[in-house]
Amino acid sequence: MALNGLKNAIPHSFRHTHISVLRSNANIPLKEVQERVGHVLAETTDGYTHEMTNDQSKSVLAISKFIGKVG
């Protein structure tokens, strides 16, 4: 199954996207994100956090749709 917008994605990029999505939600505490991804220091988690661009938002949507189909 092809995922539109993800042809150049590598597994580690999903980690960055995952953390960025969680950090963009003000209802999810930093500590929870840290524990989820195995970071001890907040600085490490923040280093993975990127402001979501429109293209990244499309990728997140594509991943969500894919997970909905297989999950």
Rank of each mutant, 00 (worst) to 15 (best):
N25C: 01
G71M: 02
H39M: 05
R23H: 01
L6M: 09
T49S: 12
L3F: 01
Q34N: 12
A26N: 09
S13I: 08
K69T: 08
N25M: 09
P29V: 05
G68A: 02
V33H: 00
E32L: 12
L3S: 00
N4Q: 11
G5F: 12
S57E: 12
I19W: 04
M52V: 10
H39C: 05
H50C: 06
R23I: 02
G47F: 11
V70P: 01
A2C: 05
M1P: 04
A26P: 05
I19R: 04
H16Q: 01
G71H: 00
G47P: 09
V21Y: 04
K58N: 11
Q56L: 14
F14N: 00
I63Y: 09
T49R: 10
Q56Y: 07
D55P: 04
N54T: 04
H18M: 11
G38F: 02
N27R: 09
T44I: 10
M52Q: 01
M1C: 05
S57D: 13
G38L: 03
T53P: 04
P29E: 06
Y48I: 02
Q56A: 06
L6C: 14
K69G: 06
L30F: 03
G47H: 11
V60E: 08
L61C: 14
V40D: 13
Y48M: 05
E43F: 14
V60Y: 06
K7Q: 15
H12T: 07
E43V: 13
G71D: 00
S13T: 08
L22R: 07
K65Y: 09
R23T: 00
A26L: 08
I28L: 06
V40Y: 04
T44Q: 12
P11L: 03
N25F: 05
Q56P: 12
D55L: 11
A42Y: 10
M1E: 01
V60C: 07
N4K: 11
I67S: 06
F66Y: 11
L3H: 06
H18I: 10
S24I: 05
K69N: 07
I67A: 07
L41Y: 15
A62H: 13
V70T: 03
H39N: 07
N4S: 13
Q34E: 09
T45E: 05
M1R: 11
V21W: 02
T53R: 01
G68N: 04
V33S: 00
L3M: 09
K58E: 15
F14S: 03
S64K: 12
S64I: 09
E35F: 09
S64C: 08
S24A: 04
N25Y: 07
P11F: 03
T44P: 12
H12A: 11
P11S: 08
K69W: 00
V40I: 11
S13E: 04
L61G: 13
V37Y: 05
E51F: 03
N4P: 13
L3C: 10
T44L: 10
R36W: 03
K7P: 15
L61E: 13
